[in-house]
Nucleic acid binder design. Sequence first.
DNA 1: TGACACCGATGTGTGCAGACATCAAAACTC
DNA 2: GAGTTTTGATGTCTGCACACATCGGTGTCA
Lengths: 242, 242
Amino acid sequence: MSTSLHHRAIENLGTRIITGELPTGHIMLAEHLEEELKVSRSVVREAVRVLQSLGLVETTKRVGIRVLPPSRWNPFDPQVIRWRLSSDARGAQLRSLIELRSAVEPAAAELAANNAPAQLRRELVDIAHALRDAGHNGDAQKFLELDIAFHSVLLSGSGNEMFANLMGQVAETLTGRTVHGLMPDHPHEGALQWHVDLAEAVAAGDAAAARDASEQIMRRTTSRLSDTWTDQPRVFIPVRRN
Amino acid sequence: MSTSLHHRAIENLGTRIITGELPTGHIMLAEHLEEELKVSRSVVREAVRVLQSLGLVETTKRVGIRVLPPSRWNPFDPQVIRWRLSSDARGAQLRSLIELRSAVEPAAAELAANNAPAQLRRELVDIAHALRDAGHNGDAQKFLELDIAFHSVLLSGSGNEMFANLMGQVAETLTGRTVHGLMPDHPHEGALQWHVDLAEAVAAGDAAAARDASEQIMRRTTSRLSDTWTDQPRVFIPVRRN
DNA sequence: TGACACCGATGTGTGCAGACATCAAAACTC
DNA sequence: GAGTTTTGATGTCTGCACACATCGGTGTCA
């Protein structure tokens, strides 16, 4: 009972829309939602307003609340990502996130090597060494924590708030990976060293080396996970013209 | 008066928070907002709920509605981006977007060369040629439209919905560029050719060439705009740990 | 006397119920 | 078919009850 009714209503409708249980074009009435969710009008209205701002629904007078097509959803919203990760589209969502990370992290590494404050560089090196140790010792729990911390600090160090914000979603991905049993028992030895190389390149201000190391890491991560989405068809969202 | 009260309330509070007129930690009371905005409680409550989902405010019982620090804002939300683009932080926002584009578009070009459907490839080539013609003829209006269309189609062709979604924000950036008088009278001749090269590489399925051409374009775009944000300090968002 | 734990008063968001206003789709009239 | 009326859903407003975090007073104990 700790979560608010408002929050639960958003969660309920959001997941049902994203799983496709409430398909594109499906029309709901606020009044109907009241009795279905057993909540009052204000709760329904506030939830619908939030879903509207996420691009999941639109409201039209005399019609009702219409579910919008996936192309209108805001794919960068943390909630939308979380809902997709726990739906049938998990593979497609993971692929999107990995492709985004593969594009962004090398750029972030370059920026961090050029701009990050000294303390952050030191922290990155420390984490990389601890990460290598945890990997050698087979401490899976600690390894995961340090892995998330490493990439978070790296993205923060880019000084680009959009990059930095991705860390939350990266964390979801990584934790989700373990949850779904996609983590290896023993981390790859080369990957551990690449993390150290990356940290030291950033510390030394060597942007090119930092990018190289990051690209190595992302290539390996991609190849390790790519078989989870081979069955997922790519969706080509039509260009919206006014 | 066409926009709803709800929407106007969001716009009012959102802009004032992002410009810093309502600083981090500032506390408002719902009751006070009612009389200030001259709207009823329901409007205020729905607006606050949306701002909450954007990470701009949080509500606490017995305290009120507290403005959150910029590190909590969702930097990928289109509304937040728009507000930041029309605030003092416009330079920083532009830099973030360009860095993101620079990271994403070459990756999108690669993906498009590997995966895009045939019709999309043809369309891209047609647009590139039309873009070159418009550039030669000095037709600024048409050039802008085609430029937006080109990058939109390219990002859509990646088959990654997150990449595809960036086109909206790219469009904002590009149109904002002309609005702020940052467009050259005559587009760079090399850039026009690079667009054609990129389109033809995608059409031919040559991922490496597509990436190269895209990187060229982004390098030029970055260097052309970088003097608009030289005075903007980089902000290093602290890593949020639970 | 002073420090500390307890507890009730207070204020604020949360949730509820009902009413009227508004406006666009649908039905109707000509 | 064009213009008009009707209808039905969201939009907006208001009063009320409740939950609960914070604050300040009270009592207890050292």
